[in-house]
Nucleic acid binder design. Structure first.
Lengths: 333, 333
DNA sequence: TTGTAAGCGTTATCAG
DNA sequence: CTGATAACGCTTACAA
């Protein structure tokens, strides 16, 4: 019962009264088969429950159809959204996603890539972590496409997709200033992720242009809990900030909740808050957070287009824009 | 540059000065190789950047190591959590997850399973939708393991993992009654998912035992938006409910937000609310929702254990318990 | 358009 | 323990 026993092209051929190559051709778009035999084959296949063996096909074609998605924090709102978009686009392009979770150890991005190579994935998309250069080189040398999303370090072969974090951060400063805020703060996690750091640096730099200082606080991993703690730290300062840019929406949610329920602060009257990602919760009534929409659809689209083009693909770098969506956590709007 | 050019066992063998079978054995746990040759092979492999071709291996062994995860609503809190847990456990068991998103059409569960068969997945786990019996039969006949999570319809071959929705629903009635509530309501989506309906039916049945009627309202798909609308419908009734059991936490969040911000109701003083799933947001300060924790870790563990056992696996049915976690959305606690 | 035959990179069998 | 050799199920020249 547990023995694996798939129908093979051979059996289909026999039933349809054709050769096995005919069967192969019937399942290869654009192959030269007469409609008559094609139909015979298709029917026989249907009756037998035949499914082309993609393992064998991949072996021959040197193209598995598999694209590896390397992610940590899969259950996180922004990541899972990106994941959704990627799988959808991938399927539309006739590919299939292999999901590798790198939540655990840190070198796991490397072993994830090795796994991708073992399955002869046509490409790998890296959403988290940064692989060693030696591994990426090996991938490239083996003809594997690589897409790095928001990883920013510029290596030569892969496609880099980034969001203009620095420019976005600058817009936040403008918004805060326009709202009459003067005591700016940045709430970050300790993750040190490129995009998170870019937001921080961009914010500080833009504030300086206005002659404003920024209080920076970093804590823990990027999530709601961190927001709670960061609120604690920032809102107990002698010079309490009147505007806080949070590295992510999750942090912003935590921070807003603490600000309201523990410090009885009114948002945006007493405190302006801006987040980043535009996760679903940001639009919920309890938050109505002004934030930046990650261009997830575009990111996914660009990634899939690039990794499924047939000719040799040059590594390149793409910077997409995050739209600011105004809600009610900043005065003015 | 884009030509695929992986190192093969042949080349490793040559470099190590052994036969290709020796290479194969060096990468097969428990094969009979002397430590000496094993080391020679491993070193040569390392130098050449060799990776065992799992496509070819799967072809021979009749075991791909791939497990297909068939999901819709990947970006949803509960689903993404389950997804995380499944990928982690799967990787621990030496398997790799292939993710198929069935968000789009409805028959897509069927085509997802066909995809799984084409890649000769060792097993498929279905988190959403219900495949036609003819397809599941074909899978089973081909030796594919099947796990259905919260799909409840009892087919013979697969492993069914369910949560005791009815029993949970009954506990909610008790809690509401104990809190002094008398006008009970159930807020559901129109999805008609087995587990959602079980909660509804269980709730109504248990209420009847107390001689209480339940107002049921259903709207849209299972999410925050639905909660907003459902609040609208339920809270404008002549006999306004004083206790609402929501089919999921997402609905509960929407309903609570509307209750507070549009109807200025105090929770739990004027309205008691219970949800289901214990998504992360349920614990956030803005909600502090009393709800049921899905046993995701257990679900994933049971699924993985079952689908990776080597001997013939009988189809069976497993019912796990959802723990009630008391927070602040019900009086009493 | 069709069939024949070679080959993809493995693992399993079987001598040695 | 080791090395030849035969599968595995498919695609793709090459001939017909």
């Amino acid at each position: 019962m547990s023995q694996r026993d798939f129908v093979s092209a051979e059996e289909v051929a026999r039933r349809a009264g054709v050769s096995r190559s005919a069967v192969s051709r019937a399942f290869t778009p654009g192959a030269s088969v007469s409609e008559a035999t094609r139909q015979k084959v298709l029917q026989a296949a249907e009756e037998l429950g035949y499914q082309v063996n993609h393992l064998a096909r991949g072996l021959m074609r040197n193209e598995s159809g598999i694209v590896c998605l390397i992610v940590s924090g899969v259950a996180t709102p922004y990541r899972s959204t990106l994941l959704r978009e990627l799988t959808v686009q991938l399927q539309l392009a006739g590919k299939v996603a292999m999901l590798i979770n790198t939540d655990r150890s840190d070198g796991s991005v490397n072993s994830a890539l090795e796994q991708a190579m073992r399955y002869r994935a046509d490409a790998s998309v890296i959403l988290s972590g940064l692989p060693d250069k030696s591994i990426t080189q090996l991938c490239l040398r083996n003809g594997q496409r690589l897409v790095l999303i928001n990883r920013d370090e510029d290596q030569s072969g892969p496609l880099h997709i980034n969001v203009d974090d620095r420019a976005s951060a600058a817009r936040v400063v403008t918004a805060f200033v326009r709202a009459g805020c003067t005591r700016l703060a940045f709430a970050n996690s300790q993750a040190g992720t490129p995009s998170l750091m870019a937001r921080e640096e961009g914010f500080i730099a833009a504030a300086r242009d206005y002659g404003l200082d920024v209080v920076v606080e970093r804590y823990g991993s990027t999530g709601y809990e961190a927001g709670l703690i960061l609120a604690q730290r920032l809102l107990t300062k002698r010079e309490r900030p009147d505007a806080i840019f949070c590295a992510t929406d999750l942090i912003a949610c935590g921070l807003m909740d603490a600000a309201r329920h523990q410090f009885s602060l009114l948002i945006p009257q007493q405190l302006c808050v801006v987040g980043f990602d535009d996760i679903e919760q940001a639009s919920w009534f309890s938050y109505r957070l002004t934030t930046f929409t990650q261009p997830v659809v575009e990111i996914a689209r660009e990634a899939v287009i690039w990794l499924s083009q047939s000719d040799a693909a040059e590594g390149r770098s793409l910077t997409l824009k995050a739209e600011l969506v105004w809600r009610d956590s900043v005065r003015g709007g």
